[in-house]
Nucleic acid binder design. Sequence first.
DNA 1: ACAACAAGGATTGTCAACAAAATACACTTT
DNA 2: AAAGTGTATTTTGTTGACAATCCTTGTTGT
Lengths: 242, 242
Amino acid sequence: MPLIRISNSVLTFIRATVRPPVRRFLDAIRRMTELNERQAMPANEIFRTLPEQIAARLQQDILGGHLKPGEPLREADLSEHFGVSRGPVREAFRQLVQQGLLVLEPNKGVRVAQTPSNEMRPLVVQLRRAIEVYVLESIFDRITDGDIDTWQAILNDIRTACESNDLNALTNYDLRFHQAIVKSHDDRDLFTLWQPIAMRMMMQYNRLEDIMDSYREHERILDAIRARDRKAAIEALSTNIQ
Amino acid sequence: MPLIRISNSVLTFIRATVRPPVRRFLDAIRRMTELNERQAMPANEIFRTLPEQIAARLQQDILGGHLKPGEPLREADLSEHFGVSRGPVREAFRQLVQQGLLVLEPNKGVRVAQTPSNEMRPLVVQLRRAIEVYVLESIFDRITDGDIDTWQAILNDIRTACESNDLNALTNYDLRFHQAIVKSHDDRDLFTLWQPIAMRMMMQYNRLEDIMDSYREHERILDAIRARDRKAAIEALSTNIQ
DNA sequence: ACAACAAGGATTGTCAACAAAATACACTTT
DNA sequence: AAAGTGTATTTTGTTGACAATCCTTGTTGT
């Protein structure tokens, strides 16, 4: 599947051709989709940059286990596969290195990172809990009904994934759920801090006996938020992260 | 000052010319210097890659306050300044983005990151403490006299910086001290996790009344380690991080 | 006066060609 | 055999040219 690249060429052309009210309308749409994407909506890839699209696909391949830890990734292969030059692929690699999904060795390229050791897991859990609890505490009084709706939509996706026993999709939506919460904090820097930590947990997604538990845990979080029960929400969030 | 670029051209020539025993000897030296650099020895820039050298300089400029938060950095300016093309500069930017020192906006370039808000500081302190305490606990029984010597050398630099009241150098060596400890853990991934968190603290280095306190705190840590007093070492480390 | 618009320069994004480095392999020597 | 050596291949690093985007400024129309 080739990448969707409407944004640059076509959109610029349209923008230049069309009357200003329509132009502003297009910009508004663009802004909205960008915002939605930021809030972890179903990925609308049209307006994203090339490297982001590539990184997003590779991320799914890694978290989905199609790319095994230690496996080397070649710039030339992927640039051919995606039909772009090596530049954007390189850039995508760097983004994934930042997320901790790839490891970079100078002059040798990148490999898929090893899943964190079991010994290290408690530390990662502790770190992620600290951040997410801090975020939830911090935003709790400013959570809008719109936020809750957004999160509910993701929760529905989690339910579907659980019911169809699709671990791959579940990992994805679980990530999106927590991502949406962290991103709703004003300070974008928190997300930057949180992402590499959370990724390391997503790489070993095998904690639950019953996959349905994942849905129930997230439901508990959102229900508590909806009831504006601060303490219960934080407790539920905290037990979900382990 | 132009970047030192001996490694590639000259070294390759030598390697190709010279007899294999010497060749391996050169490789050994190379490996050693790389290792030393990894353990935060005085920066031997000769064997580093171009982007790493650039990133190292920019890092000092940012932590030293010569580049103010919010200030935009232009690829073209720096590529001219360092006498390289935009590619390596771009790469250096990405490394610094990973460290949290720069912020990237697509199509708009990078800016120096804002120092973390005061509200957020306790969280960052908590995260950094968690990691460093974990590391120290984890490596404690395997710390060699060689390690201690290395750290003592950095401690001496800290003392010098404190005595000459050079806050800039102090920031640098403080970073190196903790970096050396974290890097001595087998799991390199811990360093990747730790770095962006620690950087955010280094960006606001203004905690101490008396600058000499910094030396005393680090001295306490190393003394406790030298005495193999686990509890005291962790306590000292923990109070140093705030 | 004020919004809509257009043109220009400045800056980042992408590309393809080339350089440097790492790797693999066949060949030699001891 | 086993290590030493040279060459060819593969892969990443670097460069400069060009394209797309952003931003500023001046102009037009109402």
